[in-house]
Design a binder for these strands. Sequence first.
DNA 1: CCAAAAGTGTTATAACTACACCCATGT
DNA 2: ACATGGGTGTAGTTATAACACTTTTGG
Lengths: 229, 229
Amino acid sequence: MLNGYNAEDKVLVAVDCIIFGFDNEDLKILLIKRDFEPEKGKWSLIGGFLKNQETLDDAASRILHRLTGVHNIYMEQFYAFSEVDRDPKERTVSVSYFALINIENHNKELIENYNAKWFSLSKAPKLIFDHNEMLAKAIRRLQRRASIKPIGFELLPEKFTMRQLQKLYEAILNKDLDKRNFINKINSLDILIKLKEKDMTSSTKGSFLYRFDQKKYDEKLMDNFYLKL
Amino acid sequence: MLNGYNAEDKVLVAVDCIIFGFDNEDLKILLIKRDFEPEKGKWSLIGGFLKNQETLDDAASRILHRLTGVHNIYMEQFYAFSEVDRDPKERTVSVSYFALINIENHNKELIENYNAKWFSLSKAPKLIFDHNEMLAKAIRRLQRRASIKPIGFELLPEKFTMRQLQKLYEAILNKDLDKRNFINKINSLDILIKLKEKDMTSSTKGSFLYRFDQKKYDEKLMDNFYLKL
DNA sequence: CCAAAAGTGTTATAACTACACCCATGT
DNA sequence: ACATGGGTGTAGTTATAACACTTTTGG
């Protein structure tokens, strides 16, 4: 390596992850009770520091894996927070990621060992530092993403019912949707496979299960869902 | 200050700015010819390093002001780039901002002193490091922003004609728009003030000038322009 | 036979797209 | 008188929003 930019300041770079999950009713986030100073014992997002030899994505994956035991979690970087005193201990810039995880599909013991807990969005506690601000921004980003491309399947089990999907979107967008309009809209996207099986747990009649069709989705390149001018 | 997180790695944090301008024909970006190693003499985005006692927004403002002489430039943080070897000299994480500037409204001498130059997007040269990737991402972000809220007035003089505005949107979205539909759409937003004056430079008939009405815009809280489900 | 959730279509309204001619003025 | 860019309206199409009843079956 060439000799560096000596005169410049170096700072700590943290990665904080907003982990969203869904329990068929509410949108939830995973928080940990912090076990070191400062702010020991307070609720916090899951985070860690960027190492010299990894990218931010690497760091986020590492942090998510350490807590949940799961690899290949859907995640997306969304903002760098940099108030000078945001961490009272030392100047730290934090790059935030949001992640979507199937709430059934992670290592419960790991999470318990980390003093982690799922909270409904509406019941989230006060968090350390600027983490509430991060959370608010993450929710807005998730809402936009969900309106723009059919994200969110990551939050459901592999097979799911229309009603589950609708409830998920209602939870993300924080408003009620009309059942028929929702189904028509989803069907018009033509990215789900309707299975022959039914889920019998939610009603006597049972409701058909669907799978997300990644192949069809990729073919359609659903990237331009924006309001067109 | 409490004593720090000693075991953690610190890195350099850079801020790189994609500065968009508009000359009534093309969307342009401002680039500088780099006058220090590595990659001396190559074209580059405008950047600098984050200092210990400033936020990322502060750093971006400082960098933009130093180059253009202008304060209060519209800017928006959009992504942190962190490939380990993106800067061969030293490990650097770069947080990118895009900025919109009225191309007439900056200090031309300053820009010349910095070896800076406006390039049409279609004629942008190869840039150092990962700056082409940053540029591509900035363009996509700008396009989305322009579809979502009436950004872009920042790129025009205070008084402008409908035709100028249309050309700007055509340049941003990189496609032709229908004159009548465009005007109807803009008028339906009801955020412009039609002035009595005409601009006589572009035609014999002259065309009416408009101003952006910040107050009306704020009242309307035009934040939910997204595809609704 | 009834409670509980699933499933299914139509109509009214709003938004978007495509499209062509006249106007004003300087040269 | 003509060349140049400015200005204007409508009709067809598509997307969205509002709305209520029937089906299934376990208890």
